[in-house]
Design a protein around this nucleic acid. Structure first.
Lengths: 118, 118
DNA sequence: CTTGCAGATGAAGATTTCTTCAAGTCGTCA
DNA sequence: TGACGACTTGAAGAAATCTTCATCTGCAAG
């Protein structure tokens, strides 16, 4: 084991763990886009966007190609889109479960968080 | 939109973005385990493990139940295991692609990172 | 009840990651 | 060539996350 796999995984998830980066990846799910358009959708400083793009580039999640005047970004593989879809699905279910739990709190039948709750 | 969805997603991924937490989740894929066993596999300070477990609890990824004088942790839903599998699959492909790129560097055919590379 | 064990929690210093600002690069068009 | 637009980069202070230490709680024996 060169670099422990679980560490690579953690790094990978950390890369996804930023609102701007998530938004960029989701925009790119609909196809390549120039920085200018990303900037129009996500309202942040250009240099900030650039920093986040550079993180995504460094981890190989996106690619950048210069086209004349502008730079166009794209997902480096469709797998990324797939992962985002999987995550969305699961997040939705987790949130649904959470709501169900909240419901139980209102009309309890069986307790749910027995050990060290707060 | 109460809390922007992309922010919830980012938080979700951030909780996965830590080696210890990843390891815990992977161990729990094989079924519930008492803290004692997690501690035996992951060699860190008990209080550190406890902190990470509390992060996982807070985000509803795991549940804890007290059994006698030990506490048993489990994935809160099988979806979590599914997400980890999806991530592993995609990570593997990304790494494979990376290696392919490295190969191309040795015997180049078409350049790959045109814009602001470093 | 009191001791001991299994974990949890709070707090604080050490690290990492973010955001922003100033400056730099690379094409395009006069 | 020179000026401009569209990004990128480096650096630094601000903010969030980690790790560790001291302390605490709950349970089970004795």
């Amino acid at each position: 084991m060169p670099v422990p796999l679980y560490q690579a995984k953690a790094e990978f998830f950390r890369t996804l763990g930023h609102p701007v980066r998530i938004r960029v990846l989701e925009l790119l799910q609909n196809g390549p886009r120039p920085v200018r358009e990303l900037l129009a959708e996500i309202r942040i400083e250009p240099s900030n966007l650039s920093q986040q793009l550079s993180v995504l580039r460094r981890t190989q999640l996106v690619t950048a190609t210069r086209e004349g005047n502008t730079v166009v970004y794209a997902l480096s593989t469709p797998d990324v889109a797939e992962l985002l879809r999987a995550a969305r699905r699961i997040l939705t279910e987790l949130i649904t479960d959470q709501d169900a739990l909240l419901g139980e709190l209102r009309a309890p039948e069986a307790p749910a968080t027995p050990a060290g709750r707060r």
